[in-house]
Design a protein around this nucleic acid. Sequence first.
RNA 1: GCCAGCGUAGCUCAGUGGCAGAGCAGCUGUUUCGUAAACAGCAGGCCGUCGGUUCAAAUCCGACCGCUGGCUCCA
Length: 583
Amino acid sequence: MLQSSNKNRPSPELLDLRRRIRHSAAHLLADAVLEVIPAAKLTIGPPTDDGFYYDFDLPRPVTPEDLERLEGIMRQRIKADLPFVGKEVTKEEAAHMYADQRYKLEILEDIPPGEKITLYSHGKFTDLCRGGHVDRTGQVSAIKLLNVAGAYWRGDEHNPMLQRIYGTAFESQSALNQYLKNLEEAQKRDHRKLGIEMGLFVFNPIAPASPFFLPKGTALYNALVEYARGLYKRYGYSEVITPQIFETELWKRSGHYQHYIENMYVINIDEREYGVKPMNCPAHALMFGAQAHSYRDLPVRFADFGRLHRYERSGVTHGLTRVRTFAQDDAHIFCRPDQVEQEIRTFVAMLDQTYKLLRFEDVRIRLSLRPEGRIGTEEMWDRAEKALANSLTGQGLEFEPVPGEGAFYGPKIDFLVADALGREWQLGTLQLDYNLPERFDLDYTAEDGSKQRPVVLHRAMFGSIERFLGVMIEHFGGAFPVWLAPVQARVVPIADRHSAYAEQVRDALQAAGIRAEVDSRSERMQAKIRDAQLQKIPYMLVAGDREAAAGAVAVRMRSGEDKGAMPLDKVKEMILKDVVDGT
RNA sequence: GCCAGCGUAGCUCAGUGGCAGAGCAGCUGUUUCGUAAACAGCAGGCCGUCGGUUCAAAUCCGACCGCUGGCUCCA
């Protein structure tokens, strides 16, 4: 769902109607495709949250002109107001009917014996289908085909690539129009677009999927990093700096060489092989192992903003949200088994506090539970999963348990947030790891003098800082809270003769640690205000004759609010208060 | 990696086989202005790259690179 549509959430009845309309629209689409491309092989066509799709195996690509033609045929069917008619058949009857439709036959094969097999028809078109339609095609009302994409049959990349046609349908033209308008609005918040417009970062094909952060983007980036450092001081983390490149010996020991090498940058030099780090954990394990630890020292919390490189397959990268070089607000907590639960709780509380500060309200939390082929005892998994679940409920957070999705070395919690177009990205994460300490033979000395194995927690609030920034840019539509804004205040001299005073104002603000600049172009004030608005700068400080005489500036807020002339000291105080309050 | 689409000035885009274009941004000049776009001029291009077809290619064909949407992947 679009974030902007979260207010005025549709009723369950309307959602059900839309589901049936969209499912029906998928039938109309299949009907139309068969008319235009009779050789088409049909597969499945379900409704989605925002519309529907239908997957076809086609002898030729679908063109944009096809989409228009298909839409036209679908509209004819809607106008004809044909009834949807269901009919129960035997497997043999259905198989006979779909003799030349191999995918439908495969679907039939998989229907367990005894289960009802139903066909639904409108006009001359019939589809194998469980049902859930509107009564007549006329009720489909408003449709729009959106795009064509490739999709593997049954989602398996070894299967043939099908052509998926995406569309949407609504109960009325006005609801459809509203949706399309929201979509357009959401596209304006695309971080890749805003990144260029606001001068935050650029990309260059010479380093694919690798952002170059411009000064303003770097200010934003560093604001997040400094925020994390602030928390670390209060939460007992110790920041460390670790190498970028390690001999592959290390990656063999950590297991990355066996499981992750495809995603690593490997360098051969001096007849030795090195790997650029895709993660920090092995380095932290080495550091922990380099010193003797008493049970009294634990937990040890190593935080690392080190740059990571992962070779992501071409075709999966995406703006800032899926890149090949990034840093995380990464930390590894080495603790005693009896400390695990407290550490989890503290982290979850810290993350919750942070997401609330950033007004990330629609966060989906997934708890990935024990997979097949795991290490450790059942008792250990029981305890670990329970500790994770308790820490979430203790913080009043709802989560979704996902059986079988945990790592082989431990369960994990993922925090997912949607971008402007509703695509979810994993941001924060917390993983329990019982494997790393084994592989690196880590220990601490217990009270009784025995050597004990610590437990490791991998954790990040932001996850990849790049990805977090991408989602955050879209979340705020570029209008960042003052503490994050790359430019917190822009001084706007009315005429050239006010430039010197404007520069004094800027210098005074900068001296107070405020990110301020002057727009000294020979432009009219209106144009400067407009540009500052478009840059979503929180404070516009107008400096003219009256202000210069009074040691003041006229304060205009990004919201358009005009606070009138205020003494410079007051303005400084107001901005700094915003920074402290996180507003 | 796979399917499809796209790639023209810093940005947004027009240009479908015959001299490379517009708006915005930039620069220069004029204007010195009170809360969302002053006026004029100038400059800006290997039309992603390489190859092919053609008398002639931004335009047609192929390969590669990059980006976009989706699929797969995401220790």
